[in-house]
Simulated scan of single mutants.
Amino acid sequence: MEKLLSTLVENNVKYAVEGKVASYIPELNKADSMSLGICVTTLDGEEHCAGKYEEKFTIQSISKVITLMLAILDNGRENVFKKVGMEPTADAFNSIINLETKNPHRPLNPMINSGAIATVSLIEGENRDKIFERILKFTRKITGNPEINIDEDVYNSERKTGDRNRALAYFMKSTGIIDGDVEEVLDVYFKQCSIKANCRDISRIGAVLANNGVLPWNGERVIPGYVARIVKTIMVTCGMYDASGDIAVNVGVPCKSGVGGGILAAVPMRMGIGVFGPALDTKGNSIAGVKILEELSKELDLSIF
Rank of each mutant, 00 (worst) to 15 (best):
E124I: 13
N149C: 09
K3V: 15
P110C: 10
N156F: 15
C255P: 10
I142Y: 05
G125W: 02
E220P: 05
N29S: 15
I131K: 14
S6K: 15
V253Y: 00
T41A: 11
G260W: 00
I223N: 01
M271G: 03
I142W: 03
D246K: 15
N75M: 08
A243C: 07
E147V: 08
M34I: 11
P278Q: 04
V188E: 04
I230K: 02
K82G: 13
V275H: 08
L4P: 12
V80T: 10
K291Y: 10
V290N: 14
G19P: 02
N29H: 10
G180S: 07
V253A: 01
E183D: 15
P146E: 14
V80Q: 10
I177P: 02
S33L: 02
D129Y: 08
L296I: 08
V249Q: 09
L293F: 04
F132E: 00
E295I: 03
L99T: 14
I142F: 03
S194W: 07
F81W: 11
G19C: 04
I223Q: 01
E184V: 04
G76K: 09
A197H: 01
C193N: 04
M34P: 07
I223T: 00
N212C: 06
S157Q: 11
E124K: 15
A197L: 01
A167W: 00
K256R: 10
V251W: 05
L209K: 00
N94T: 14
K173V: 11
E100Y: 14
T42V: 07
N250W: 04
D281K: 01
E78L: 13
D74W: 10
P107D: 11
V65D: 01
L209P: 02
A266Y: 00
I150M: 05
F171V: 06
K102H: 14
P268N: 03
S61N: 01
G180T: 08
A31N: 07
R106F: 05
Q192I: 03
M1N: 12
V259F: 01
G206N: 02
A22S: 05
A279G: 11
K160M: 13
S303C: 12
T119H: 07
D151I: 13
L4N: 13
P278K: 04
P268L: 02
I247H: 14
G219D: 06
D181C: 06
F132T: 01
N12I: 01
P216L: 04
N113F: 10
N12S: 06
E220A: 06
V290T: 15
Y170K: 07
G262V: 02
E27I: 12
L43A: 01
A71L: 07
N11V: 12
S63E: 08
H48Q: 04
G239M: 06
Y226L: 10
A169S: 09
T7R: 14
L264Y: 01
K64H: 03
N198F: 09
E183F: 08
R270T: 00
A169T: 08
N109V: 11
M111E: 10
N12C: 06
